[in-house]
């Protein structure tokens, strides 16, 4: 089942954020989306997940049109995501953060859970077993009854991925999963993400960390000013002069990338201070 972008366009007023992007994402592969800040990478993720509306064009998963559906319907059709700024349910336990993902399956029988305790117990046990599996995959079991918001930053990143993974989605959207992680954590993340590759799963990673992208991805899309500049294997991307010129080549852009990185560090510093304060 492929995920297909058909002539996607996103416009804010007269400002075009995504301009006529068409692409095909195949199961079993890890796709990277790169590009300088403001190129429209996150917008693509947010449109796919239904957080942003699509101005024109379509998004299809297999034969099913995804664009235009509500967020929870998109999630229900097997598309899971993480966020650029971690968005966990801070004052819920780690376990509950995952368990709530089963709402779509179990909500219809919630009344039975209330009225018939044995049923509630067995359903809960089944859900917990699944959640534990996903948590174990990310070595999060020691934190299982902690509040998600009290976890260290790196663990919160992992938990967010575990939450996206718990219902075995066919599409996994990762929006800058390495943002704010240190070297060791990024290495850990790379290894864990590699292990998530599965024949039925489309993985899409938006990331600034080129080492991670080049090491992990099978296909890479290069975005520039809302347009799809180039797509190919990591080797092709690295060898393409157009990409080098537009994205990596000119000294201007390198400065842009550097300042973007600095920007992010500044933001993270701010965040850390807010947290401690």
């Amino acid at each position: 089942m492929n995920l297909v972008f058909e002539n996607l366009r996103k416009q804010y007023g007269s400002n075009v954020a995504i301009d006529d992007v068409s692409a095909v994402f195949e199961p079993g592969l890890i796709h990277g989306i790169i590009g300088p800040n403001g190129a429209g990478k996150s917008t693509l993720i947010n449109m796919t997940a239904g957080s942003y509306t699509v101005t024109s064009g379509r998004i299809l998963l297999g034969d099913r049109q995804i664009s235009g559906l509500k967020k929870y319907q998109i999630a229900g059709s097997g598309i899971a995501r993480t966020y650029q700024n971690i968005r966990l349910f801070d004052q819920m336990t780690v376990l509950d953060n995952l368990e709530v993902c089963y709402y779509a399956d179990d909500a219809g029988l919630a009344w039975k859970e209330v009225l018939w305790p044995p049923y509630a117990k067995s359903r809960e046990a089944e859900r917990h077993a699944q959640c534990r599996k996903a948590l174990a995959q990310f070595d999060l079991l020691p934190w299982i009854s902690e509040d998600a918001g009290s976890l260290p930053y790196g663990r919160q990143r992992m938990l967010e991925i575990a939450r996206a993974l718990v219902r075995d989605p066919s599409v996994l959207l990762l929006d800058e999963p390495a943002a704010g992680l240190n070297h060791a954590e990024t290495a850990e993340l790379t290894a864990r993400l590699r292990a998530l590759r599965a024949p039925h799963r489309i993985m899409i990673i938006v990331e600034h960390d080129m080492d991670l992208v080049m090491a992990l991805c099978d296909r890479i899309l290069v975005m520039h000013h809302g347009k799809l500049l180039f797509q190919g294997t990591p080797a092709e991307v690295q060898g393409n002069t157009e990409v080098q010129q537009a994205y990596l080549g000119t000294s201007n852009d390198i400065d842009e990338i550097k300042s973007a990185a600095q920007d992010r560090r500044a933001k993270l510093g701010l965040r850390a201070r807010q947290r401690s304060g």
């Binding site: 942003y52 509306t53 968005r87 801070d90």
Partner: peptide, 10 residues
């Protein structure tokens, strides 16, 4: 209200 600024936390 733009879509991005609709993001509230708890």
């Amino acid at each position: 209200v733009s879509e991005e600024s609709m993001v509230y936390k708890r």
